[in-house]
Structure formats: C-alpha cells, structure tokens
Design a protein around this nucleic acid. Structure first.
Lengths: 148, 148
DNA sequence: CTTCATGCAAAAGATTTGCAAGTTC
DNA sequence: GAACTTGCAAATCTTTTGCATGAAG
C-alpha cells in the first residue's frame, strides 16, 4: 500500500463525505496528479492521462484538481499571471519558493528558521497555525541584466 | 515636494536610463497610481484618470504599470486567479499577513527577522530580490473551538 | 430512475498585440 | 525626421460554463 493508494483512499472518503461521486475519471485524475513529482499544471495532467490511455477533457481536469486540493492531496502554488500550478502536498515538506519573475524559474528552499518564526508570530496573535504560503520573487542570476 | 513628486522624478530617471520616452500619459498614470492608497487594479487607475479628465486607454495603463513596478514605485500583489493588483511600494512597509481561514480576519504583522532571512535566501541562490508574498493561515482566537 | 459528472464548444475575463496615427527627442 | 507611444480593435490565453449525453448511487 503505497502513498498513492493512501491518497486515493483519502480522496474517496473526501468525496463520500460531500456526497460527490466517486468516478473513474476522478480517480484517474487523482492518480495522474499524485504520480507527478514536482510542480505540474492542468495540461500536464491531461497529457499524463493520455499517456495512460485515458481520455479526459481539460474541463474535467479543471474541475477535478480543486477537489484534490480541498482533499488536501495537492497544493496550489500562488504565482503571478501564469497558469495555475500544483504540487503534491506530501512532496512539499516545508519548502517555500523563490521564483524568477522574468523566466519563471522556480527554486525551492527550506529554512527551519522561517518555520520557527512563523509559529512565534501565530502564537503572539493567539492563532492556531494551519498552513502558510511563502514566496520570494526576484530575478535569477541568468535574468539579471537582461531587458524586459 | 511631496512623495508623489519624488516618485515622478524617480520614474523620469528610470525612463531616461532606458531611453524610454517621458510622455504626458505615462506621467499621468504614475500620478494616478501613486495617489491611490491601498490596493488598486488597472481599471481603478483608468477611472482615476478619467476623473482627472485624462483619457488613457486600458492598454496604455497595462503597458505603464509594469514600468512603474520596475521603477520600484509600486508593487504587484500576488493572488490566485484574479486580476493583477498593485499597491504603492511606500505604503507596504514590510508587513505580511496572518489570516483566519474561518472568519477571514486579517492581521498584518511585521517581523524584521523575516526580511533578513529572505535576503539571505535570495543571496544564497544569486537572486536579486524584488518582492515577496508571505501569508500565514490558521484559526484566530475567536474561531478556535468553533465548528468549521 | 434521479442526480451528478463529463465533453464539447462557446463564453468569459484579463492581458497582450498589430497597426495606423500621434508624440517625443 | 526617426523612433517610440498610444488607442483601438482584434487576438491570446487560461479558466469557466451551458447543455446534451452518459455514469453513479
């Protein structure tokens, strides 16, 4: 019983709880998304599905991914104006992102100090911390000095 | 000589440095943007301009705001899939957000330590830092213990 | 069988772009 | 005058939606 299987089971439970249907397509989308490593977008999931011989429309994937997100299996990344991207929640660990605003290059970093400080801030305001989104923007070495 | 005037001067310098033209419309857009307090989007700038009797097309404003951003006068905010919003850089200070996921209550906090660490991370990867988005999610004191 | 999910194509919404006409240097 | 800007409309791009048809419960 690997991680994906657990994920699928969790997704089923999520769907049942909300009286949503457990369909073939939804499960296939879930599998395709969970099989991806690193970041992915809607089209990549569609491509992954096609490779596996599953025909699912983009619209369906657009409808399914937010469910997976609500189920806690994937996390949407917050970007600027590009297409929405996701990543498997389990892969995330505690890393955050450093993104080049020119070429979209994405670097992941992990700094325990941030986690500690965050807990500190939450405590200061009496909040019970459940998550965070932390992204740095800038120009990567290659893009510094370039125009536009 | 108020803040806006300084901003405009800085914008002129920025344009000159890149051999871009200092036009009436660009200056008006800059003024309109700098006059806004809090967050604003393209249409709000267009509206502000109209109120001042300036007719500038949306396209022009779309072309001008990134210049203002590059000049460091305004900062683009990062959201999910809505329209791009900006805020005057000077207004930002260095605050980040702590948001209650149940009642949407928003607390702004400021922790110099985060800024320091962020610069450290950027430097480590050779990035030139231009901005960041840092949000903590959790339950505020009032919402803890309540049902979701 | 009732209700919800899917696919398709069309719609929507935000932003970008080609091009002719107007400005800036 | 040459080069860059602007405005307009059309084009793009991503995401959403209406609707007829097909599955799930």
């Amino acid at each position: 019983m690997n991680g994906d299987t657990v994920g699928i089971e969790r997704f089923r439970t999520f769907l049942r709880e909300r009286s949503l249907r457990i369909t073939q397509v939804r499960e296939r989308v879930a599998l395709a998304a969970l099989q991806r490593r690193g970041h992915f977008d809607v089209d990549e999931v569609v491509a992954e599905l096609r490779r596996g011989g599953v025909r699912a429309s983009r619209a369906t994937v657009y409808r399914a991914l937010p469910l997976l997100e609500q189920a806690g299996l994937i996390t949407a990344t917050v970007g600027r104006r590009e297409r929405q991207r996701y990543e498997r929640t389990l892969d995330r660990g505690h890393h955050d992102h450093l993104m080049c605003t020119r070429c979209q290059r994405l670097v992941e970093f992990e700094y325990e100090a941030f986690e500690v400080l965050q807990r500190e801030v939450a405590e200061k305001y009496g909040f019970k911390l459940t998550g965070h989104s932390h992204q740095l923007f800038g120009l990567c070495p290659d893009c510094q000095g370039r125009r536009g």
